[in-house]
């Protein structure tokens, strides 16, 4: 990776053309695809994404064309020289394995989305056992790195992280969105067609930083911070809490596709001002 900023899954990641643009024009160190499933999914009806105070609320419902349709897009990205992480979603362990194996040849790493709040039923990342089993099953088949993306919607995120560590995950992405709702007071109804959605953006940052910090104290694997990174200072906060890289999603809306370049140069500014040579020196300093 040429820099520690990564495009988060689901944001401008529905096609090869979009991901390529974020990588080259935006300057991301790597990009994560939309979460891919076995079958094509249309996702939820609109409204699927709305702006609220200090954040975005989305319930896209994992719309994607299915991993088989997406292989063309991954090939295109490989040919274009883009560093790409394939996000994988399944309703069962065997689905996670099928999709992960299907895309592994065309990706630099696989990210298991164990934590989408916008699908029916309990999330894998809300169970230590399921998280362990999913990671272990996929790890046993793949040679490329496997990331697990966790949810903050749990009482004890550290135990889930530990379960993934035991299953030999290569990195943890901390975190996905917080489950939330917006009601329009004049329509007198929830705005999202799915009623509830995932909250991202600035308001997510203090929650996700806390999660990173708690996990970094107890667990010895790489952490990628995710949630509300808008500026270099936000990224630094994650590094100090123990993350080695950050993912950026919502900020693309407010600072443009080149938010990655901006964040990188702001990180450099911070390091220079504070007298550090590299990011490595500040990882986990706040712990």
């Amino acid at each position: 990776m040429r820099n520690p900023t990564i495009l988060a899954s689901g944001v401008l990641s529905a096609s090869g053309a979009a991901l390529k643009r974020v990588y080259f024009e935006g300057g991301a160190g790597a990009v994560v695809t939309k979460s891919l499933s076995v079958e094509a999914r249309e996702g939820h009806k609109n409204p699927t994404v709305i702006e609220i105070e200090e954040g975005l609320l989305n319930a896209v419902g994992l719309a994607n064309p299915g991993y088989k349709n997406f292989i063309k897009e991954l090939k295109y990205l490989k040919e274009s020289g883009v560093v790409v992480v394939a996000s994988v979603f399944g309703k069962s362990i065997s689905e996670y394995v099928e999709v992960a194996c299907g895309v592994a040849k065309y990706a630099d790493a696989v990210e298991l989305n164990l934590s989408c709040p916008n699908v029916e039923g309990k999330l894998f990342a809300q169970s230590e056992n399921l998280s362990y089993e999913a990671v272990r099953a996929v790890k046993s088949k793949l040679k490329i790195p496997v990331f697990a993306k966790l949810t903050p919607n749990v009482t004890d995120i550290v135990s889930v992280a530990k379960a993934c560590e035991e299953a030999k995950v290569d990195a943890l992405v901390v975190t996905n969105t917080v489950k939330a709702m917006k009601i329009d007071i004049y329509a007198k109804k929830p705005v999202l067609a799915n009623k509830t959605g995932g909250l991202s953006g600035r308001c997510l940052k203090p929650i996700a930083v806390r999660c990173v910090y708690e996990i970094a104290k107890e667990v010895d694997i790489d952490i990628i911070g995710c949630g509300g990174v808008f500026t270099g200072e936000d990224a630094v906060e994650y590094f100090l809490a123990g993350a080695k890289a950050v993912q950026i999603g919502t900020a693309v809306l407010y600072r443009g596709i080149d938010v990655f370049k901006k964040v990188c140069s702001e990180i450099e500014d911070y390091l220079r001002k504070e007298g550090f040579e590299s990011i490595e020196e500040i990882i986990g300093l706040a712990i």
Partner: peptide
């Protein structure tokens, strides 16, 4: 989907 340039549903192939 979003209408505001974040979800990527409407990105055109070729130009992005």
């Amino acid at each position: 989907k979003c209408g505001i340039g974040i979800c990527g549903a409407c990105v055109l192939d070729g130009c992005g």
